[in-house]
Design a protein around this nucleic acid. Structure first.
Lengths: 200, 200
DNA sequence: ATAGTTTTGTACTGTATTGCATAATAATAG
DNA sequence: CTATTATTATGCAATACAGTACAAAACTAT
């Protein structure tokens, strides 16, 4: 009802989390210091701890936010488009936009920064696995729907086709981070989608 | 001709590099301390600097060694086997053996530890890109050969098929690191190879 | 033996880092 | 206006870390 009790916050939690995400996206968890995060968010150390917990917790929140955007991307493109091929192209185009949104391109935050932490921080490994499963599930559902609508061959294994689709995404994420040209990656995407859609 | 001049080394450079590689493979560059490396190699700090240079240099040497093993794997399996499908299965089986050689599985050192460093250490990004290109090239060459021998459709684009094959490898590397079961990943591999070989 | 060479082992320096303690600040509630 | 609450700002303590200096050690060459 009313405004909160004590001294008002100087930062917007949403903006701050976004700024933190950008840093983690570039440098990963281990290479990012709290000073980096203070500089990026404009917050001081105690405020960060108070608002988000320690560095790992903040990283996981940033990861979660990134995944939320990814999920939104899926809904806005693949799930919103009736034609499967167009939907897949739309989704990958959106992913490319994100992966190449800076110079040098950053690729995917999940695929490029979480794996290295996975064997040290058990929680991050679980996060990573959940993301993979989530994307698998969404893709599989969409492919199943397309099959019902006759846009995929009847006998095809949509579960595995979905996983191959995500394989394409993984490669795109990595190649962007490695600095490969957007055009070259786009060719791979088009080819990959073709190979997925002509499943026997 | 003769034995070296001064006090003999207590370590075998090859074994030491191997031990360092194992640590980097698990923890990546940033999370690995020189103390970790001393413990793993049995060397003391000055010896490490003298033999390999600083931490980043040692990491890149370890990366190079891992890639050498990968290259050897390609030669021993894919290039040694006349039948393309069997060759691909052999290569991916070898990769799986490496990725799942420990518990929890470590996945691929290159794909799982290099990307996070790529935007901070320019050299690592170049290394990463070179690896991708190298694997692309080997696969493409092998696919071209198979096409000449009638094991691939005549009109197919072997360059892109090679890149899709590596996409499959990327995904396997990540999924192993995330702790996905070997069996599940094996299914994806079989499916992926099928989709690659039936290229239109 | 003695000199020369290379590695080892220890210890050190300077810096970076995390997480917290403390006090000042800015709001609300009564 | 006073008490209460929540956040900010500064700074601190303990530790971790990378890289190096230095002397002792272990070898070869003569």
């Amino acid at each position: 009802m009313t405004r909160p009790r004590g001294r008002p916050r100087k930062f917007d939690p949403d903006q701050a989390l976004n700024a933190a995400m950008e840093v983690f996206w570039i440098k990963g968890l281990a290479q990012t210091s709290l000073d980096d995060l203070c500089a990026a968010t404009g917050m001081n150390r105690p405020s960060i701890y108070n608002a988000f917990g320690d560095k790992e917790a903040l990283y996981r929140l940033a990861l979660e936010r990134f995944c939320g955007a990814l999920d939104q991307g899926l809904t806005d493109t693949l799930l919103a488009e009736p034609d499967l091929r167009r939907g897949l192209h739309g989704f990958f185009a959106a992913a490319l936009d994100v992966y190449y949104s800076s110079d040098p391109p950053r690729g995917c935050m999940v695929m490029c920064t979480a794996p290295v932490e996975a064997l040290v921080h058990e929680d991050v490994r679980k996060d990573l696995r959940q993301v993979l499963q989530r994307i698998d599930a969404v893709l599989e559902q969409r492919l199943n729907q397309a099959r019902k609508e006759g846009q995929m061959p009847d006998g095809c294994d949509c579960r595995l086709a979905a996983r191959l689709t995500q394989a394409l995404l993984h490669s795109v994420a990595l190649r962007a981070r490695a600095g490969e040209s957007k055009r070259a990656v786009q060719k791979l995407i088009t080819y990959g989608i073709d190979r997925i859609l002509t499943a026997a």
